[in-house]
Amino acid sequence: MGYLGEFEQLILFSVLDLGDDAYGVSIRENIEERTGREVSSGAIYTALGRLQGRGFVSSRVGEPTEGRVGRPRKFYRVEPAGARALRSTYETVQAMAGGLLPKLIELAES
């Protein structure tokens, strides 16, 4: 089971959410909509390259489209190993955070 950084978790959740339509632009918009954070396409591909190297995602190249001036899309899919790593990381955070949320909110707003 590998460690996942915060940005890698965001990407994996996003790819999971988008299903067959997970590629650079859609992942970027998905993260921006859900988190309000602006991320660059380059950073997304760098992280995806790393995740692919660890076997957490796989990719396929789509057909060129006119809106991309003939350049193809590269679609990603979460692999079982990636799903296990993401679940483990998420559960770890949940286990640690259990019951602490009110305290956290109180402290943060004090």
Partner: peptide, 27 residues
């Protein structure tokens, strides 16, 4: 801007990133 992007964005993933940049602008 496209000329600049083509010169700055390098590496194996460059075609997809450049495609994404164009598509994102259109969107």
């Amino acid at each position: 801007l496209r000329w600049l992007a083509a010169r700055l964005v390098r590496g194996a993933e460059a075609p997809y990133v450049l495609g994404d940049l164009d598509e994102a602008w259109g969107r």
